[in-house]
């Protein structure tokens, strides 16, 4: 998985990043290493682009849930942007589409 297009906005405490490739358990540590510093620095709203993610497994879904909870704990939220076909279907089948804000 490649994490690209990371942008931060100090003024409103938001950040966005885009993922590409396969997001699975092998990539969970790298994802956590990229997003945890954002939350620790006070970023409460994170926008994760998923349009180029070809597959997401349960470990990666758990990482997104973990990040969503952390964002909400500090008054923000996690948004999933433009999930690819398979990611959208996987979110629906796991019923996580109702838990996340998907734009």
């Amino acid at each position: 998985m490649i994490i690209t297009d990371t942008t931060s906005s100090d003024s409103d405490g938001s950040s966005s990043l885009a993922l590409s490739g396969r997001f699975d358990a092998h990539e969970a540590d790298g994802f956590r290493a990229a997003v945890d510093p954002l939350v620790e620095a006070g970023t409460s709203s994170i926008d994760v682009g998923l349009s180029d993610v070809e597959f997401i497994d349960s470990t990666a879904l758990a990482e997104l849930v973990r990040l969503m909870k952390r964002c909400r704990e500090i008054g923000g939220d996690l948004r999933l942007r433009a999930p690819s076909d398979p990611v959208r279907v996987i979110l629906e089948l796991t019923r996580l589409d109702a838990a996340f804000e998907i734009v």
């Binding site: 497994d57 349960s58 076909d85 279907v89 996987i90 629906e92 796991t94």
Partner: peptide, 17 residues
């Protein structure tokens, strides 16, 4: 149980396409 649903989702999407 940990892997089957994402696998079904990925396969169903691609095969339907």
């Amino acid at each position: 149980e940990w892997r089957i649903v994402p696998t079904i989702g990925a396969i169903a999407t691609e095969m339907s396409r």
